[in-house]
Design a binder for these strands. Structure first.
Lengths: 206, 206
DNA sequence: GTATATAAGTTAAATTTATCACAAAAAAAT
DNA sequence: ATTTTTTTGTGATAAATTTAACTTATATAC
């Protein structure tokens, strides 16, 4: 039946389900239920079942879900039954931390290219990668057919970098710069911004 | 009329409005409109007006919003017309990056305490702070009356650290560990997890 | 001075999202 | 072997959220 249109808010919850299933698996569990899974992450059992029902039938009445099977299925749905090469643009403290993060690999991603425009860091080795000149970004990204990128440059340069990434064929951008970026239709963008999250919380504090 | 109950989804958008208004201000603008603001961040003008209407009347027909005034008001609503001291627990690469991040200060936050359990880093100086022994976390956090904390320890220790933070009086936790954490009623929690965001995007890629 | 354009705040409508409740199926208990 | 319990997937219902439309006010153009 192909990929029907699924609400984005549903898609956004799938990675959390996947993460939690993997954790259950690490804890030695083999099966779980919409109820058991939901308790873990404070999501109702009905919602989990409804969400999954957009993609097929993965459970069994009376027993629930076979964890390894549901993981497989979710990985396929989310297209992480493969490893996406990523480009990282900007190697300040944050870029450094991301380059050295060992958590991507087992979840469908790996850093492949690192860029910066600062001559003092270009050519240096970070987490096993030679930092490349961001002037050659378009060329190198195209050559390596990289489709996913992370931006950790400062706010003033984030839009320009994003534009160049898009030109190079990048289709998904994770932006750490605290600024909204415009991308064309068909290019995905997500934001990571601690200040946004902190201010969201302080609303509820006195 | 006090603080009526405002949908959390509305509250979640306010920090983005604030961020964008500050940016407009840096660009030299003095006024904006729901339309102008919305265009920047791909949110409809009606939604911005509706969101703001939960908190009062901040604009003027015909002209729109005075940026500096709206910034002031949003800062008050979000309780960032003050500076919140923060504790940072865990000083790996990521903790390092956060400790050195210069962006918190102008948005209502500052790192005040840094903790780790690794004897080789305890006592060392990071971004001007002496890393403290996490065994003394409760005591020191209470003493400094810190209400906001960031967790950058590994997944296996995140819940335990969160529990101890809560015991110490922390009321808002920003968790960077890729695991869901349980906190009691009245304690705020938010997550930052690049893998979740990346997988959300790869759903839409082929 | 009058007409036109801009734009907030709000009420109503439309849409989206989440919950509920139940039939069907499997497993466990008696 | 039958009853009870667990649990899925789903259609119906309820709730939440967004959009649209409208009234009022201000500013600008003529």
């Amino acid at each position: 039946m192909g990929k029907r249109i699924v609400p984005d808010i549903v898609v956004a919850r799938l990675p959390l389900y996947l993460q939690t299933l993997k954790q259950l698996q690490r804890e030695g569990e083999y099966t779980t239920s919409s109820n058991g899974l939901g308790k873990r992450i404070d999501i109702s059992a009905a919602q989990i079942r409804k969400d999954l029902s957009h993609f097929g039938e993965f459970g069994k009445q009376g027993t629930g879900y076979a964890i390894s099977y549901l993981i497989e299925q979710l990985e396929e749905i989310l297209n992480v039954n493969q490893v996406w090469d990523m480009a990282l643009v900007g190697v300040g403290f944050l870029g450094h931390a991301i380059a050295n993060f060992r958590g991507f690999n087992s979840h469908g991603f790996q850093v492949k290219l690192i860029f910066d425009n600062n001559p003092t860091v270009i050519g240096s080795n970070i987490a096993g990668f030679i930092v490349q000149d961001s002037n050659k970004m378009e060329e190198i990204i195209q050559e390596h057919n990289v489709k996913v990128a992370m931006i950790t440059v400062d706010s003033d340069h984030a839009q320009e970098v994003a534009d160049r990434l898009v030109k190079s064929g990048v289709k998904a951008i994770l932006n750490y710069a605290p600024v909204t970026i415009k991308v064309p239709e068909g290019v995905q963008i997500q934001y990571i911004d601690p200040i946004i999250e902190l201010q969201h919380m302080t609303y509820y504090l006195d």
